[in-house]
């Protein structure tokens, strides 16, 4: 990592974003930010090898031309190796594919369900929480357009 500090802006690495349905991205990027379990992990070329769970959130990347792209991602894993970052997630969406009103509705629904905590035994809170995070990620990505 130390040798990367001086020339990071010029250096690139390969980023793969893969869902069970398809390979969404396989491209060269300058940097990436992955929503890992312990917080956002910023990755530049030469990052130390790492494996960590990914939580629903926003994946940001900066391509070779300095352009920023954002994706709403679901749960999964990130695997950083010497020359490649691989993000395996249940789902990933580009802002173009996101339906804003649907995301907002999902957000409201999840919030309402979470509000019933303790009163209603039928509500699966872990699931409601996960869908809340997913909806938040979607809304954030759309807002960045």
């Amino acid at each position: 990592m130390a040798d990367a500090t001086t020339t990071t802006t010029g250096r690139t690495f390969r980023l793969e974003l893969i869902s069970p349905e398809r390979v969404l991205l396989d491209r060269t990027v300058r940097s990436a930010q992955v929503p890992a379990e312990d917080g956002l992990v910023g990755v530049l070329a030469g990052h130390a090898p790492l494996v960590s769970p990914v939580v629903p959130g926003v994946l940001t990347l900066v391509d070779e031309n300095g352009q920023r792209h954002r994706y709403a991602v679901g749960q999964g894993f990130v695997e950083i190796t010497k020359d490649r970052v691989r993000v395996l997630v249940d789902s990933a969406e580009h802002p173009d594919q996101i339906d804003r009103t649907r995301a907002q509705k999902a957000f409201d629904r999840a919030r309402e369900r979470l509000g019933k905590r303790g009163s209603d035994k039928d509500v699966d809170f872990a699931r409601a929480e996960a869908s809340l995070y997913r909806a938040m990620a979607r809304l954030k990505v759309v807002a960045s357009l």
Partner: peptide
């Protein structure tokens, strides 16, 4: 294969 495993090897394996 010796990456940093966060939070821990066991937790990641359990999720996998």
């Amino acid at each position: 294969f010796d990456p940093i495993l966060e939070p821990s090897t066991e937790v990641i394996f359990e999720r996998l």
